[in-house]
């Protein structure tokens, strides 16, 4: 009987640590995109709530309960992380398995904003980009999903095939921020 061994996107890339900031891989149980059909956002959100206890998030936001989270990832689109979706949702929305499409990283530590300021054009200042906020923007030359998941913690999603580039760019930014801090 043949057996296929699974590999995660950042298997041999993470974790890395530079001074106070660490970058580690996050591997959710599953990631499923949910795109309600015409006029079906509310009914899909209700179906999600009854099946998994969370509603669909509005633009730029995320909802969550326990280890299940839904993040807003584009016009009329959200992604549910942490659980296989109940088939009951199918008539209301297009569901598509994205579990293997994304490399998910967690950037943690004081100065995370400064690291991302080297790569992301959006303002991640805590006063503006609060816990639970999600943005689809750029990470260097790549498209990325960036979420604040704590006072000093961000989650970053890039396409799986670009995990190497993302880790390299984040590590360079971490080193540069640390080198500047050493001057002060």
């Amino acid at each position: 009987m043949v057996d296929l061994i699974a590999k995660t996107p950042c298997a041999d890339l993470l974790p890395i640590k530079v001074e106070a900031v660490t970058l580690s891989e996050v591997t959710p149980e599953a990631i499923t995109s949910i795109m309600p059909y015409e006029g079906k956002w509310e009914v899909a959100s209700e179906a999600l709530k009854s099946a998994h206890g969370i509603t669909l998030p509005g633009p730029g936001r995320s909802t969550g309960k326990g280890d299940i989270r839904a993040i807003w990832t584009g016009a009329g689109q959200a992604m549910v992380l942490g659980a296989r979706l109940d088939a009951g949702l199918a008539p209301h929305a297009a569901l598509s398995d994205q579990s293997d499409a994304w490399a998910l990283m967690r950037l943690e530590g004081a100065g995370g904003e400064d690291v991302l300021a080297r790569l992301t054009p959006i303002d991640l200042n805590p006063g503006v980009f609060k816990r639970g906020h999600v943005a689809r923007s750029l990470l260097g030359h790549m498209n990325a999903v960036i979420a604040r998941v704590g006072a000093e913690a961000f989650e970053i999603m890039v396409f799986r095939s670009m995990a190497g580039t993302a880790v390299h760019e984040l590590e360079e930014a971490m080193k540069s921020v640390a080198a500047r801090a050493a001057l002060r």
């Binding site: 015409e38 929305a93 297009a94 598509s96 994205q98 579990s99 499409a101 396409f159 095939s161």
Partner: peptide, 11 residues
Amino acid sequence: NLRTISVTEQW
């Protein structure tokens, strides 16, 4: 009434 999403990297 349809929805599209890339699955290039899923498979």
